[in-house]
Amino acid sequence: MKAPLFFLDTDAKILDLIRKGDEEALVMLYEANRRMIMAYAARNNGTADDGQDLLQDALMVLWERVRAGRFEFSAKLSTFLFATAKNLWMRRLAKQRRESPGILDPDSHPDGGISLLESLIESEEATMVQEALMTIGEQCRQLLLLFYWEELSMEEIAGRMGFANADTVKSKKYQCKKALERILAGVMKE
């Protein structure tokens, strides 16, 4: 069944804010969906903190997908957030039970589904990368974030960071990535 036009209009406005990078959209979504997600967490033996954390993570997934242009607007945002929170919660429960999270199809991106990459974000390995990232220079960290997280194009990054052109950015990005890998390799050896 199609969502009411009223909600579609509201969701469209929020999506537009996210595309523009306005973080107020996240606050609006947080307030609008907090009760629902908290209630879900409570029903599934989660705490209030779990509920808040779930909603924040679901919002991050939405933010990343919309910013990267990988979000297909086929349902209400609240539906997407609820499905995402539910999947995140199931994965956490599986992790607590030391069960395999199951085979994830990296190609599949159904609404609310968690991709392999998204699931890796909560892994210990990703935490190590995060720590390594803190040790490289500010410019490199900023560039890598713009490219891999914000998923901006080389041209956009050049404009944002004041580089001469896209080729310069590409070269700089290669150097920064190699630097990060070296730090990471050192950490792995330890």
């Binding site: 892994s123 990703a126 935490t127 990368v129 995060q130 390594a132 990232l133 974030l145 891999y148």
Partner: peptide
């Protein structure tokens, strides 16, 4: 893992 770590930082 590298990409996931960078995204985790931004997230």
């Amino acid at each position: 893992v590298l990409v996931a770590g960078i995204r985790a930082h931004g997230r």
